[in-house]
Amino acid sequence: MTSPATPLISVTGLARHFAVRRDLLGRPIAVVRAVDGVDFTVRKGETLGIVGESGCGKSTTARLMLKLIEPDAGEIVFDGAEVGGRDLPLKEFRRQAQIVFQDSYASLNPRLTIEASIAFGPQVHGLPARQAVERARALLARVGLEPARFAGRYPHELSGGQRQRVNIARALAFEPRLLVLDEAVSALDKSIEAQVLNLLVDLKEEFGLTYVFISHDLNVVRFMSDRVMVMYLGKVAEIGPADAVFATPRHPYAGALLRSMPSMDPDNRTEEAPISGDPPSPINPPPGCRFHTRCSLAEPVCAQRAPVLGGGDHGVACLMHEAGSGHSRAVGAAA
């Protein structure tokens, strides 16, 4: 094992374009730039929250970083070793990095008992069937489902919250180090969601896990995350410590997104819609900064020059934070 300072997973230049239409020879005519050059790292033991509107590439990023979709470009390094390289074969990476999906029902094979579903993973990695089943039962107990009652049941006999607990147990059965939670609690009732979130917090502590927590629910992300990454149209807009991002967002999009959170304080009402309309189509993303079509602070330069993610610990991709970018509010601009 490498030093604790080595990031658990580090992603550079990750990109994936999907062809939506092809000509007769199979050459793509229109391409969705679902994820277009994304860099980030996840530190050992932390929770990185990923937020953004629907279609901004959150889920694609998760699947790319787990190599469930083959990236067009980019490098994924897991604990200092290149994924799929000599030191970390893909199969071993799969054991160490697991995912829980949003749809708890679709995530479980309807023909297998939940015990068999959980035991499948460890068996793939060579654990004898008997021990795999023992592990499955122990984990069922750990996620709050009494094995004697639940082990032999089928997915359709469980409630949504119970099924998502099963999915968490299924992922934990691999004894992973990284767990990606792709909208894992978004489909649950609020009360059940809170229980599952608390369970996730406890499990993280107990098993020494690292989470990548994807959600569109900002309150939940704030509760869960140590650091937050804000995505817009396949790119990272801002990434930094959760407290800093939520207190002083640096990217206009992050600011607008946070202002869209309903406030509990009657003196602090949201009077105007902070952001309106749908994001532009990722098929032909706007040139320059992708947010300039909806940004209240956009200037002509924003349509010409693409910002670069910079700014150290609390990084932002905005021309206003790039010295000498030509934006009138740019840091150090000759006003």
Partner: peptide
């Protein structure tokens, strides 16, 4: 296309 097949792929099987 179901998630459980995707989960099975993520298992390395």
């Amino acid at each position: 296309a179901r998630d459980y097949v995707e989960a099975a792929r993520a298992s390395g099987a």
